[in-house]
Design a protein around this nucleic acid. Structure first.
Lengths: 177, 177
DNA sequence: GCCATTGTAAAACGATCGTTTTACACTTCA
DNA sequence: TGAAGTGTAAAACGATCGTTTTACAATGGC
């Protein structure tokens, strides 16, 4: 089925442009060109620009969450190092979408909120698996370190991730019975 | 001089709209209305939208840096708590500007880079003042915690700042001779 | 062999973008 | 008194926005 290739090409091109140049700054003509398809085909698959944004974020959520299938905090940050190495560091695309839309676009906002909630729960699970018990306060600290590494890596690169990883090791070590 | 009031009103209105709705999504007509002036006056003072963005960021940098006039890491996060309480949490406006423009607008990029470098140096000074010696690795961790608190507060609120503050206390305590 | 389906190329839609212009009113100080 | 400066209101600029339409070609399953 060629429509699956078309859809994949479209989402990949859209994610790349949204991530590298911003959502609002990326025009649909630029998108059709990058995706190698006519605007008619693009709109048949995407529906609208807003829907495309939501779809891109939903697909990214899957790809991101797949990376979070770990059972220790150190492995969590090792995965983030890998992510930054492979994809570069341009900040959390979900928070960027939230910021660009002012949180006023329901289709986008729903995906962002769902992602952040799933992300938070996954962090709590990883922390619990690592130290052998629930530790909500520690989980919140690890979440902050993760967000901080993601944001700071924009201008500090891998050094930010390494620092977060080292700090997390100290905090987890202290909490382990 | 009335032009100073006009300028202040313009920058205040622009900062508010850019922060709440995003830079690109904020149109100039919306700005003229919010600032209570004609587009002719606005352009006489601002020059262009890009220049206005750079000016807004430069003014925010001053206001932000004034808040960082502290000599302990705990006071640093206490100030951030106050900032979030007063101004709310919509993420770092500098990183958001960088993201929306893809880092491709030199006027904006210059202010962002200058701010982040000044911010990093100030953190290093505060950490050094706190523990009595230079500690670049610890400073990087505190910077990551600060960025993380700023980002996570968007969806976690003050809890993110409290967590960052607690984590920072542990890391600084460990480093203190 | 035919008719959905799925695609392309390109013009055109009205709306809105950032910006400039036109025309006019109010100060303020020489 | 009058010129310079600073402001407003509103129309208009060309460009670009997201989206739809028109006209037509290639494909593949019944």
């Amino acid at each position: 089925m060629a429509s699956m290739d078309t859809r994949k090409k479209l989402i990949a091109a859209a994610e790349r442009l949204f991530d590298r140049h911003g959502f609002t700054a990326t025009g649909m003509d630029r998108l059709t060109q990058a995706a190698g398809m006519s605007s008619r085909t693009l709109y048949k698959h995407a529906g609208s620009k807003t829907a495309l944004m939501a779809t891109v974020l939903a697909e990214r959520e899957k790809r991101f969450m797949r990376r979070l299938d770990v059972s220790s905090v150190d492995a969590l940050f090792a995965e983030l190092e890998e992510w930054v190495r492979v994809e570069g560091a341009r900040g959390c695309l979900f928070l960027r979408a939230h910021g660009e839309t002012g949180g006023e676009t329901p289709e986008v906002e729903a995906v962002v909120v769902a992602h952040k909630e799933a992300f938070r729960e996954r962090i709590a699970e990883i922390v619990a698996a690592d130290i052998g018990e629930d530790a909500p306060a520690l989980a919140e600290q690890i979440l902050v370190l993760y967000e901080g590494a993601t944001a700071a890596a924009i201008y500090r690169g891998q050094e930010a991730v390494s620092a977060a990883r080292a700090a997390a090791a100290v905090l987890v070590g202290r909490a382990r019975p």
